[in-house]
Design a protein around this nucleic acid. Structure first.
Lengths: 337, 337
DNA sequence: TTGAAAGCGCTAACAC
DNA sequence: GTGTTAGCGCTTTCAA
């Protein structure tokens, strides 16, 4: 029954609560006879331990919080799936908080940092401020970042700078010299900080190839297919338009494809397009893109957090997962080349 | 600090724990002077209430569990988003459990039914057995089903039978007489029970129009685009193939479109295709489909559960949300008509 | 091998 | 207005 307590079981079985507790926690200082008796009574009374009382006593909840953006992006969902997989493997529960504004994020971190409800925190695809990090460290709250940066915390990332460079190198290798870059706002406080690294990789590659950075070939704006389409339309209406566009997400790349179609540009004949993330649509659209291990990042992040809870006081490290360039049908050498 | 307790605050402020508790719980039996003093000390000591201790004392956790399939389907994610929105509006936390097998589901329900860790349960897109329902009711565990059926529990659904009929009526109205139905397994224990209602609506419409049910025009199998493609290929290779195919999900409809392309069938000239769910891809594919209010179902389910927690002992009801036929470009009258 | 009892941090009578 | 204290259900010394 719902209100059965350990004392009920103890009375019914004619033992003390201590004994019941021992049986239920697998202690071997119990005679086989009493153990069986207790187990039988538990069954009859449909008794289970009260996890709240247990948590209060043990100072441990076996649950972790996750702070992440709303589940509107497939990449976020995929990371979350990985997190859930690793947590349930280890009998940990997850309490997700999807947040929209930096304020919400900060106050949630503050609230959670007073370790009590949760044994650890995962922060997914959101930047964290130094203030919050200090708070977390001061309160010894085990924390792992996934797709986010901070030198004082453990974090699971992909080398986006390298990824941005990989894409741009590839386009340059195809012969492109006029390469556009379309992304969400580089400086948006709640934006994935990863976007900026991809941009840096793009610039690195240009620089290394001796190509100048042309501001007309760079646009940033709200995330979204339509928004990306608009940015592409503007960029491609330029008097000397790019022959290739690299976008910071597949969704945006699809928006660019929309724009190309509207302008009667042949992809990849007139325009090469590269996305990022390799979401499901990318394959269907035959989109050249960069695949990052989303599920795996989540899973590794979850595991890392659990190991941190089990064994604190290790110095924070960054785990960089490999990226992969997926070459499909939206890229080719530039025209007249 | 993380280990600061109410007693620390009390001592520091020179009052009793009761007073601190009163202040923090907004009781008005406290003088303004002491209230300010206590608040100040709380701030200085960075003290916050320990929610675990609070829960144990109050017998209430302010969190609810959700049992749902893995987050691989966009429809599941969208419902979950609605749930999360309504819960966070009401300061409830969510503990999601994504489960794969009926066994897992049953044991999780059993575990959760011993009300302690969680104030209520949401079960999303999963059937529940009578045994589990009885257990939940016996333990007075507030429970709401979303996209699932049981007469003894509150549930949020769409009228899928009506939806299936609506689609089929529409195709019949266009002049189709040979209408295929492709779905996931109708009897799979962990499958959405909604599939079967859509099928029944399909049969209702046929019957009402005096059209015989042709088993060659019905296929069921694993969920997935490719699987649906295979089923469609088989169905369309029949000597007298259907002129329209109605699928139980947009993903499957896209698989059917793949099949049509492979067979060089023009859609909608040679073959009409209707999906279900109106996922994001559907618009892009210009797919005629049925839109169900996924987010809204989640949000209403969350609210219903909270009202059930606040005010139990109401008799269970089914809330049916309206469906909408979204006519796009994959449907037309049949050929030679 | 078992039991008694303290105490995890909080709230809510009850007393003053 | 404020303090004292019992007790939510559990684990774990300590003693027997």
């Amino acid at each position: 029954m719902s209100n059965t307590t350990m004392l009920d079981v103890a009375k019914y079985a004619g033992v003390s609560v201590a004994t019941v507790s021992r049986v239920l926690n697998g202690s071997d200082l119990v005679s086989e006879a009493t153990r069986q008796k207790v187990l039988k009574v538990c069954e009859e009374l449909e008794y289970t331990l009260n996890p709240i009382a247990q948590s209060l006593r043990l100072g441990r909840t076996n649950s972790v919080a996750a702070i992440l953006p709303f589940l509107t992006l497939p990449s976020i969902v995929e990371r979350l799936r990985g997190v859930m997989a690793s947590l349930s493997e280890n009998s940990f529960e997850l309490v997700p908080f999807t947040l929209g504004t930096p304020n919400d994020r900060d106050s949630k971190i503050t609230e959670l940092s007073h370790r009590s409800k949760t044994d650890g925190i995962l922060i997914i695809s959101m930047p964290v401020s130094d203030t919050q990090v200090d708070l977390l460290i001061r309160n010894k709250m085990p924390t792992v970042l996934i797709d986010s940066q901070h030198p004082k915390l453990d974090r699971i990332n992909v080398d986006d700078r390298c990824g941005g460079k990989m894409v741009t190198d590839y386009l340059i290798g195809l012969g492109h010299r006029k390469i556009g870059f379309i992304s969400s706002y580089l400086e948006n406080p709640l934006q994935f900080s990863s976007t900026i690294y991809r941009f840096e990789g793009y610039r690195d590659a240009l620089k290394e190839a001796g190509l100048p950075f042309n501001p007309n070939y760079q646009k940033e704006g709200e995330h979204g297919r339509d928004q990306a389409k608009q940015m592409a339309l503007e960029m491609l209406s330029h008097e000397d338009p790019p022959t290739a566009i690299f976008t910071s997400s597949d969704t945006k790349a699809i928006g660019v494809l929309d724009a190309a179609r509207e302008l009667n540009l042949n992809v990849p004949g007139d325009l090469s397009v590269v996305g990022y993330d390799d979401i499901r649509d990318a394959e269907y659209m035959n989109l050249t893109t960069v695949r990052q291990p989303l599920f795996k990042a989540g899973r590794i992040g979850g595991r890392k957090l659990i190991s941190l809870i089990e064994k604190p006081d290790t110095s924070p490290e960054e785990i960089l997962l490999p990226l992969e360039l997926i070459i499909r049908g939206t890229t080719a050498p530039p025209p007249n080349n």
